[in-house]
Amino acid sequence: MEEKKKTPFLQLILDDFMLLLFLGVTIYAVFYLIWGLIELAWLSPIPSELKQSLIGGK
């Protein structure tokens, strides 16, 4: 009797190029774009004590 080897899970991932497309786009979007943009959005202004020391009165 011939036994057909079950295709391993990882090989299925390798062969599924639409899944790879999804993974590639999502990982990049989350870690590079979204995380990076959030960091830029969360920057705070120059601390007021520093501003005071220079132009808030000598």
């Binding site: 991932i13 390798l14 990049y28 870690f31 590079y32």
Partner: peptide, 10 residues
């Protein structure tokens, strides 16, 4: 090649 897909763009 899959490692490229996952890791290279960041």
């Amino acid at each position: 090649f899959v490692f490229y897909v996952i890791g290279i763009n960041v």
